[in-house]
Design a protein around this nucleic acid. Structure first.
Lengths: 258, 258
DNA sequence: CACGATGATTGGTCTATGCCAATCTCTCGC
DNA sequence: GCGAGAGATTGGCATAGACCAATCATCGTG
């Protein structure tokens, strides 16, 4: 903590570096413990207090910290982030202290077809990898994932490389593809016979159906995923806030009746 | 726009007032149209550019505006806010250009009991109002809502006053109760016989079950609501982002198996 | 010992300013 | 008329500093 930001990587914003530094700090502290004050961080890191503050704002918004006016800034109870973000299943489970795993059920190359072609912004004739995986937490089936990715993006993809790994990590490490944004929808559904058997739940059990389309920075669509999460083991929880100084905003999409 | 912030209400933060002023502006513009530059707003409102910027940051985060470096700041396509917020059904529907309505099915005073007592932080013997309402959008059933509120909070509550109104508005207007934060969980479920009939969907249709506990600023729990939203008409959609400079964070709660 | 007052520390908000990067517009030259 | 370059405008990021509000700790008094 006696160092200023001379550890910076070229071009990286000070705010971002500060965020990372503070996250390291948080890892070393217990819930409820205070981090150093803004003024202290400012002088120790050799940056302005507003810059420190901006980094902390971000961490507060993401739920890592909570501020108490006049007291300090404290490590939060680990809780659900307010914002939905692109999260790999593996990372998600790891943050819960669980061991994430996966079992590849199917891996083959298909023609995209109309629907998948549209979702991936490729022609229906395009070659696409279809990957079906059962996602496990502490060895228990949690979700069933069907993933489509343009075949040209992942030459030489094998089951071995997929086993017990995060697809995002693999994309980046082995293919230099970095996912940066996407769109996700969530619907309630019920499990069919095959799904029920794979997930170990009764037929027609309630489940969440997540559909996600992910893109790289330059807008290339790199995956379309459907994931079915068991409703008996999975629930979305959010801390909500209504600020008097903000108008209410919508929290859901309403789709047209068929 | 030739006025400075002399329209301010006592104690209200400049950032908040700016936000409101800009929201008014947005209402008058078309999607894709530019708002005045930060520098222009700064001089016209008589506040510093950083303060303008903070207000715009907020609006950008909430999806009202999008910034293009070097070009300006533009009105966004109306889209789903990234953050889940406390939203009244009425406001939600209105933002979709639909007419919100409701039909009160039941309004009576009961004893809280163990579960509701716990949710409302009152004793099981406490008197609690039970309100069941069907929520309509353009006259069509959309959600079934069961609301519990401590009876002492809403003396003289009648069906008339509930009809076609937002409970939040009513709480504030008639009882001076302002909800400020809460916790919401979302689960997939299926409709039972009564629910299916009320919502006009087949038996065992997938649906979202929202449970929400809402509190005032000083932490008093003022309502516990269960809402059942039709899965065929309701879906959660989010724009997702994975910033390289941010660690992934969880987006859901995982509940223990019963 | 307990309570109240005071001072220190902390977060909260804002001002003024500077510089860089990206984009747009206008002018000039071919 | 078109393209390139320069200047203007815009967002992006940061500094230094000031002041207010809330909380905490310490000290003094009853």
């Amino acid at each position: 903590m006696g160092r200023s930001l001379c550890f910076h990587r070229a071009g990286m914003r000070k705010q971002v570096l500060t965020r990372q530094r503070v996250l390291e700090l948080i890892d070393q502290l217990q819930v409820g413990e205070a981090i150093p004050s803004e003024r202290r961080l400012s002088s120790e890191l050799g940056i302005s207090r507003l810059t420190v503050r901006a980094a902390l704002d971000d961490l507060v918004r993401d739920g890592y910290l909570e501020r108490r006016h006049g007291s300090g800034t404290f490590v939060s109870e680990p809780k659900i982030a307010q914002q939905l973000t692109l999260t790999s299943f593996s990372e998600d489970m790891r943050r819960r202290g669980m061991v994430a795993g996966s079992r590849t059920i199917e891996l083959r190359e298909i023609h995209a077809g109309a629907a998948v072609g549209r979702s991936l912004s490729v022609s229906p004739d395009s070659r696409v990898m279809l990957i079906r995986r059962l996602r496990l937490a502490d060895g228990e089936p949690m979700a069933l994932e069907t993933l489509h990715v343009p075949a040209a993006l992942v030459p030489g993809l094998t089951r071995d490389r997929l086993e017990n790994s995060s697809f995002y990590d693999l994309l980046e490490r082995d293919y230099g593809v970095v996912i940066s944004h996407g769109t996700q929808s969530i619907e309630p559904t019920v499990t069919n016979e095959e799904e029920s058997e794979l997930l170990g739940v009764p037929l027609h059990s309630p489940a969440f159906l997540f559909e996600r389309t992910s893109r790289t920075d330059d807008g290339e669509t790199v995956e379309f995923v459907r994931s079915l999460y068991r409703g008996d083991r999975y629930r979305l929880v959010a801390e909500l806030s209504q600020r008097r100084d903000r108008p209410a905003s919508a929290q859901a999409a309403l789709v047209a009746a068929e």
